[in-house]
Design a protein around this nucleic acid. Structure first.
Length: 272
DNA sequence: GAAGGCCTGGAA
DNA sequence: TTCCAGGCCTTC
């Protein structure tokens, strides 16, 4: 699942690669994944220069001259690949950007089609709703502010960490991994967790994500780097996807439960 | 706050 | 053949 570290990795690679390039042709193969009118992509983007690539929550943001922002959300299985070979007859390729005087194209591929692409202006009120409503990401707020967000919430801590309006960038992998590192049971309710443990959780999230970014993110299902390479943080997961295996900290079997329709993996010994 | 739906590949 | 994975949204 592409979460903050995976999008951050992609954004850095694409920033280096395509900044300054000028869009020539925009080819939409699957209209279903667009959240803005198809003709807007074609009419507004052609001939414009890419100014930069960055991240907001789990969204990848491409700044384009003319105060335009092109937003990619990778859903579960989305990929953004910068490729020389053009776009073959692959039914999972939904969107292709071509550039003036460049042989490389930028391909959006997504087998499960949970991803989306939108185009907006740069002013706050012009942003796509999914972006406008995002909470801060863990790196944008202090531990104090983080604890403040959760202190009176009564839901399960794991489910709240996945709520992008509260805090952005965290998905199932990094929620499970951070809760394990902080020693907090995913079923706990934050209003009953001591403040200092919430502060510790913020530290665990930042630390886990920093480490994941250094390793190029987690490549588990389909996530790939912009050059087709793989991240390696999946090799360092302690509980995510490891139910039944021994906890690397204490050896007890990792458990899996369901919270609000989502799986949560944790160690009942280490996480209270 | 919980459950169902979208969507597809891979596992059971 | 059926079930499961889960991003986010809609509906209850």
């Amino acid at each position: 699942m592409p979460e903050l570290p995976e999008i951050q990795t992609l954004a850095r690679q694409l920033q280096k690669k395509i900044s300054g390039w000028v869009l020539s042709q925009i080819s939409v193969r699957t209209e279903q994944i667009l959240k803005s009118p198809k003709k807007d992509f074609e009419n507004k983007l052609r001939g414009r220069r890419i100014l930069g690539v960055s991240r907001r929550g789990k969204f990848l943001r491409v700044s384009v001259e003319g105060d335009l922002l092109l937003w990619f959300h990778l859903g579960m299985t989305g990929q953004l690949i910068c490729s020389q070979t053009g776009a073959a007859a692959d039914p999972h390729i939904h969107f292709v950007l071509h550039f003036q005087d460049r042989s490389s194209v930028l391909i959006f591929r997504d087998p499960r089609k949970f991803g989306s692409i939108s185009l907006s202006g740069g002013r706050p009120e012009s942003l796509p709703e999914g972006v406008r409503l995002l909470g801060p990401d863990p790196f944008q707020i202090s531990a104090d502010a983080f604890a403040g967000l959760f202190k009176s919430r009564t839901g399960r801590i794991k489910s709240l960490l996945l709520n992008q309006r509260l805090i952005s960038g965290i998905g199932n992998i990094y929620a499970d991994e951070s809760l394990h590192r902080a020693g907090i049971d995913p079923r706990r309710r934050p209003h009953r967790i001591h403040r200092e443990r919430l502060v510790r959780l913020h530290g665990a999230i930042c630390q886990t994500m920093t480490e994941a970014i250094r390793k190029g993110g987690s490549s588990i299902d389909d996530y790939l780097h912009a050059d087709g390479g793989r991240g390696s943080f999946q090799d360092f997961h302690r509980v995510y996807g490891r139910s039944g295996e021994p906890c690397p900290a204490c050896g007890q079997s990792v458990r899996q439960v369901r919270l609000a329709g989502r799986s949560a993996s944790f160690c009942a010994q280490c996480q209270k």
